[in-house]
Design a protein around this nucleic acid. Structure first.
Length: 565
RNA sequence: GUCCCAGUAGCUCAGCUGGAUAGAGCAACAGCCUUCUAAGCUGUGGGUCGCAGGUUCGAAUCCUGCCUGGGACGCCA
């Protein structure tokens, strides 16, 4: 049983009394959650009816409330212009708890995706640059969306579209040849390459010929020049090793690491396709697709020196992915600053006659700001993710030493808590918000945080461990207000997942988990679970069901839920 | 200049497909561990929902204009 079921029942009962004035769907859409606990569990506002019947909403509510009757409702009352229904706590909680225990971690799973593929392009860090806080957002949002989509019955294809191609490599090669040192690079590849990259931009401010050299070297790379290629490969390998450490810590994996370079030999076809379709125009020596009819700037396909651009690769990648995966949807979890770029390539694909272009979705997110401004790699202004993660883990270790020194496998728990804090901090707010970088906020373990949810889960697990035996056979349902608040939230789980899918919003789940934790902690503080009476089994069922939903919800965010902490 | 995103409590944010008395967390203050993990719970104070119009029985929510912050706007990605 879920909210959807009880809402439907309520709507059916109301519709029955309306003689076709409103259809079932209208009524379902009108039903809302009352604002205050004492107003009941479901509310139906009578304003629309008032208009149709030309009668006062309060009167209509009074009349209807008298007529609606169903065993699942304890009572139905008129409250001003609303008809408020109070659910039968015992009956509903019995159903909800039994169903969660039966389904276990598959509670809340849906099948509407019917196994269709959804490709998710996320993380996509740039080779030879450090994995910054900025990439964290794409990584955790994309990873969570993959989990959510899977929970809805789709098959997610996790794609790490590595930034392993482009003029930046020309810059890097120039910088390395001018100032680089093989030994230093071998010792600390990412730091050293970043230094070279930053130095390049500094020197290029006074010497614009460097930019020309960089473009030339990138052209050589694209044409298969051996020296360029071997340097490129070396930079790439070293970077991937570094990234693997981070992904391991975050618990993220990919189905494909095909980055930009992978499409290098596939772009010609796409360019010819554009030509055949008469979409290409020459403008200032570059080849572009004009988009003025859509009020957009033209999409650049080839530079005046014949080298390709970002758009060329993304067009090629989209076509390749459709051919290979036949996706039903294709997500791009990429920063908000690239909105124009994606609008352009989606339009170009449509102009090429691809119907599936409608299934492409750019999922933008806000920046991580430093002092109110976007962080810039070019100036070396980055905060390294790995350092932040390590710091979080150390803090978690300290916390454990302080609060639970006898804990087993401390290291694993500290990692789960530290990493959980960072992931949760990123996911709990709307994607679109810019975030001012704050180490303090990320490392907070109290209040609305990942560790708070994890802690709630661990507490609940602890009760279950202390219960002598728990067969879950004698669940009779619960009737008190504290457990009811928890049960009501438990039955909303599926609806929350659906909403997070619809809006590509992991934050919906994070907010929900906070709320569930708060209600459970109130319950914990007010009700003694382990006391021996006839409701013991039902209370244990509530506790067990809560652990299931908390753990599964955290999993959808990519956060672990230790049994003890 | 054009376009996109945002503006809600001291701070960080929910609420935004219109509905009842605008909510959390942090910070401040005051309580609660001989009883299931105090990373917790309870209480207090704190708001012209950026501003001005409009639509509506009803607007933080929808529309228009303006202000503020961030971003994008051709050879970076």
């Amino acid at each position: 049983m879920s909210v959807v079921d009880v809402v439907k029942t309520y709507a059916e009962e109301i519709t029955l009394q309306l003689n076709g004035l409103l259809n079932l769907e209208d009524v379902v859409n009108l039903i809302e959650k009352p604002k205050f606990e004492e107003q009941g569990d479901l509310a139906f506002p009578c304003f629309t009816l008032a208009k149709k019947l030309r009668n006062a909403p309060n009167k209509i509510a009074m009349e209807l409330a008298r007529k609606v009757d169903h065993p699942v409702f304890e009572k139905v009352v008129a409250d001003g212009p609303y008809i408020n229904a109070f659910l039968n706590k015992e009956m509903v909680s019995k159903h909800v708890l039994t169903s969660i225990l039966e389904k276990g971690e598959s509670y809340g799973s849906m099948k509407f995706g019917r196994g269709g593929n959804i490709t998710i392009d996320f993380s996509s860090p740039n080779i030879a640059k450090p994995f910054s806080m900025g990439h964290l957002r794409s990584t955790v949002i994309g990873n969570s969306l993959a989990n959510i989509v899977e929970k809805c019955g789709y098959d997610p294809i996790r794609i790490n579209h590595l930034g392993d191609w482009g003029t930046q490599f020309g810059k890097l090669i120039v910088a390395y040849k001018l100032w680089g040192d093989e030994e230093l690079v071998k010792e600390a590849p990412i730091q050293e390459l970043l230094k070279l990259y930053v130095q390049f931009h500094k020197e290029a401010e006074n010497d614009s010929s460097l930019e020309d050299d960089a473009r030339a070297w990138f052209k050589k790379l694209e044409d298969g020049n051996e020296e360029a290629l071997s340097l490129w490969k070396w930079f790439r390998d070293e970077s991937l090793k570094e990234f693997a450490k981070i992904y391991d810590l975050l618990g993220v994996h990919f189905d494909s690491y095909h980055g930009e370079a992978f499409y290098n030999d596939k772009m010609d076809q796409v360019v010819s396709l554009l030509q055949e379709s008469n979409l290409l125009q020459v403008s200032d020596g570059a080849e572009v697709v004009d988009l003025t009819e859509h009020d957009l700037a033209p999409c650049l396909i080839k530079k005046s020196d014949g080298a390709t651009l970002y758009a060329t690769r993304d067009l090629t990648a989209a076509i390749y992915r459709q051919e290979k995966y036949e996706f039903e949807k294709s997500y791009y979890v990429v920063g908000h600053e690239q909105s124009l770029h994606f609008a352009q390539i989606f339009l170009v694909l449509q102009k090429l006659g691809y119907n599936w272009a409608k299934q492409l979705v750019h999922i933008p997110f806000g920046f991580i700001l430093k002092d109110g401004k976007k962080m810039s790699t070019r100036k070396g202004k980055v905060v390294l993710l790995e350092e932040v993660i390590q710091e979080a883990i150390q803090l978690a270790e300290k916390s454990i030493a302080d609060k639970n020194p006898s804990l087993q496998n401390k290291a694993a728990v500290a990692e789960a808590v530290g990493v959980g804090a960072i992931i949760f901090h990123d996911l709990k707010n709307d994607r679109q918000n810019n975030i001012e970088f704050s180490l303090g906020d990320m490392l907070k373990f109290e209040g609305a945080t990942g560790p708070y949810v994890q802690y709630t889960h661990a507490r609940a697990c602890s009760i279950l461990r202390k219960a002598n035996s728990f067969e879950a056979v004698a669940i009779t349902g619960l009737n008190d207000g504290y457990s009811w608040s928890v049960v009501k939230l438990l039955m909303e789980f599926q609806a929350v997942i659906e909403r997070s899918f619809e809006f590509h919003a992991p934050s919906q789940i994070a907010k929900y988990l906070i709320e569930l934790s708060q209600e459970f902690n109130k319950y914990y503080g007010n009700v003694k679970v382990l006391s021996d009476d006839e409701e013991l089994e039902s209370r244990l069922a509530l506790v067990k069901a809560t652990t299931i939903v908390l753990k599964e919800g955290l999993r959808l965010l990519g956060v672990k839920a230790p049994d003890e902490m």
